[in-house]
Design a binder for these strands. Structure first.
Lengths: 245, 245
DNA sequence: CGAGCCGTTGAGGGGATTCAAGCTCAGTGG
DNA sequence: CCACTGAGCTTGAATCCCCTCAACGGCTCG
């Protein structure tokens, strides 16, 4: 009869429970820890709490000083600012797999307000943990910087694509992005008209008019107030017609 | 009579010539190496070439893969993209002390084109050097990430402040920023009308009209085609009038 | 000196805003 | 049960800001 094998040394070779959770994470490839191999993940001995937020929940406000970054597991978060003339402007969206709140890793205050657009699930990554892991795993720091660069590109791309041209074109481009980021198979998130307005720099009335127009054209079909489906072919055709003219 | 002191050992304690150059750099405080103390600077054994560029010189194009980041010692650089409908959009400006081209440190291609707006002087910081120094001096990595975050804030602030409201307000805000970043005492850089247009999302004609109007009001005085002075009080008053309405 | 770039100004039209009204729907309380 | 309310969405009409089209002047440069 065999006796159970009892290791004499290195019992710590058994991965920590949290590492097992992260290995199984459904967004691991896209997430910050995607940079770590299983051995790297095995060193995560901290508890990484997963939190849930309802739509319209404020994740943080401008000026607050956070103590953690977050990995978005599902849902959509918007970042907004108030301009010096008092208007709200939505400057970026984050979705599944994105890292948000990186400023906290530098001890800096948030320059914008983060609000959940849909139900949101995210993992809290405490700043000290990231800093400790970064010292051990240079790959993590590399990946962190890559995230920052992605945020810059996102913001600049948003500026270039979603603030130029007539209202119709801007809305088509927004739908294109939303469709691209949508969780596969699911309905896509349909922003409120005033959110569209503050994203695309137009009034609620104009946003409503253009949405209605696209609905009549069959590009867009509303499924309840906060969801919709898009006819991919029609959307592409409409976009090309815009870019041609 | 005193003999000159000749050290017997540790002649290498004498800072490397390049470190001396960096210690004396006129933008050191604002620059990436501001994070390093003199001892840290002493370890720079590489040659850091300073390059000069004439206005309209293209520093890099979209899609190119650089091998260095740069510290701007003087002048203004614009970053532009071509939208999918073929229009040029200027998405950010960089000035004295800014770090540009950080993507190269990650081996990523540039997503936008960088062009000198004025005569530009900058120092080339090769990617391998930054990586090696970063491994030795965590403060440098910290500062590097801080720069990235600043780029994100810049881009989002640009989006929020320079794309909203009537043409007049947008131009006033641009002038406000240019005045803030101007090298002290010097005239401020006056963009071409088509540059203003591509920054603020308006036509050259509208840009010209608004500039002329501000000139008549005494807010702005042109000093040659590429320079101007602003009446600080008048600018502030005009901005407040805008924000009130 | 004509060509071309840059800036300016005018006239007219169009797309978005403004102002206004009405609609649906969920929540509330009489 | 249903009026009442308010939030969100839609649609209409009038206005206005900005774009488009156009012409012209100053300037540099081949």
């Amino acid at each position: 009869m065999l006796m159970p094998v009892i290791p004499l040394y290195r019992t710590d070779a058994v991965p920590h429970p949290q590492a097992q959770v992260c290995v199984a994470c459904e967004v691991r490839q896209a997430a910050l820890f995607g940079a770590l191999d299983d051995a790297g993940l095995a060193r995560i001995h901290e508890h990484i709490p997963s939190t849930e937020w309802a739509p319209d929940a404020v994740l943080w406000r401008r000026g607050e000083r956070g103590s953690a970054a977050y990995t978005l597991r599902s849902g959509i978060v918007r970042f907004e600012r108030i301009t010096s003339s008092g208007e709200r402007r939505i400057v970026r969206l984050a979705g599944r797999g994105d890292l948000i709140g990186q400023q906290a890793l530098l001890g800096e205050a948030y320059a914008d307000e983060a609000v959940a657009c849909t139900p949101v699930r995210m993992c809290r990554l405490p700043a000290p943990m990231i800093q400790r892991m970064g010292a051990e795993e240079p790959a993590l720091l590399q990946e962190l910087m890559r995230r920052w660069q992605r945020a810059v590109d996102e913001a600049e791309g948003w500026l270039a694509e979603l603030t130029t041209g007539p209202a119709r074109r801007r809305l088509l481009r927004l739908l294109d992005r939303l469709a691209a980021d949508a969780e596969p198979g699911a309905l896509l998130w349909m922003p409120r008209r005033d959110e569209i307005g503050d994203m695309l720099n137009m009034t609620v009335e104009t946003a409503s008019r253009v949405v209605s127009q696209l609905r009549r054209e069959g590009v867009l079909t509303l499924q309840g107030p906060r969801n919709a489906t898009v006819e991919a072919a029609a959307l592409r055709a409409a976009l090309e017609a815009e870019d041609a003219g």
